[in-house]
């Protein structure tokens, strides 16, 4: 059981975002995809849940070809995949409790009481106990992000996709989120894909790191391997030296 993207191409109009993107994520591991802003990290992530379909290439999740899957099958698959959005993407018109319970209400065998129970449990997991009746507008950005977390894990997915989980957060909250990501893997055994440009966070939470550059994976390896790499682009990105990246072929 794993996630595999093979030679994925995706263009928006004339802009080619992914140009032969290939990566494999094994069960139980957490992989970070790093890269500058606008290089298509989120685009790659959205292919995994079928929010986007590849122009060319294939996306395999649990041995099924997501790119060719009919819509109904996709909805079934998505119960196994939790998605944590960059700005949480909470539904403004619903309470926190309703937001977290959204995915659960799609499961026919869940009763109202068992949904409420599970919602409380998920909120406890992200340290937001008793927030059920609040509205998204009433809580802070970091709290919203944690609610997004709770919503993603509510259906006990096998995979969790994190889109910029720590961007724009203060160091303390960043640490809390990183801890959450690690806890998910440790306690729930989920497979994780993290999109980030925060190097510290990437090195802290991942088993492997991949650098996305010009639509392809430029480098992948363990955090240790990446730190030791002598590729110009990798060095430039880790050390924050644009002159190295600009000089790349």
């Amino acid at each position: 059981m794993s996630i595999r993207l093979e030679e994925v191409h995706k263009a928006f109009g004339r802009k080619e975002v992914l140009r032969g993107f290939t990566i494999e994520i094994h069960e139980g591991e957490t992989v970070s995809i790093i890269g500058g802003s606008g290089v298509g990290k989120s685009v790659a992530l959205k292919h995994i849940v079928g929010l986007l379909r590849p122009d060319r290439g294939e996306v395999w999740v649990d041995g099924e070809n997501v790119g060719r899957m009919p819509q109904q099958e996709l909805y079934k698959l998505r119960r196994n995949v939790g998605y944590v959005f960059q700005f949480a993407a909470l539904f403004d018109s619903m309470t926190i409790g309703e937001n977290v319970g959204m995915g659960l209400r799609r499961i026919p065998e869940m009763s109202r009481a068992s949904i409420a129970e599970r919602v409380a449990e998920c909120l406890r997991l992200v340290d937001l106990e008793g927030f059920e009746e609040r509205m998204p507008a009433e809580i802070s950005g970091g709290q919203r992000k944690r609610v997004g977390f709770a919503r993603a894990i509510a259906t006990e997915p096998k995979y969790l996709l994190y889109d910029e989980p720590t961007t724009g957060l203060d160091p303390v909250t960043t640490a809390v989120i990183d801890e959450l990501i690690m806890r998910m893997r440790r306690e729930l055994g989920v497979t994780g894909v993290v999109i980030t440009h925060d190097m510290n966070s990437a090195f802290r939470v991942s088993d492997r790191v991949a650098l996305l550059h010009e639509g392809r994976v430029r480098f992948q390896g363990t955090p240790t391997e990446m730190r030791a790499a002598d590729d110009r682009i990798v060095r430039g990105f880790i050390e924050g030296r644009p002159e190295l990246m600009g000089a790349a072929p």
Binding site: V49, V81, Y83, L90, M102, G103
Partner: peptide
């Protein structure tokens, strides 16, 4: 439109809502 740009529409999809 707001739901689309704040990814709420995508969120619906990932939660298996059409």
């Amino acid at each position: 439109g707001t739901m689309r740009v704040t990814e709420q529409v995508d969120a619906l999809e990932t939660l298996a809502y059409d």
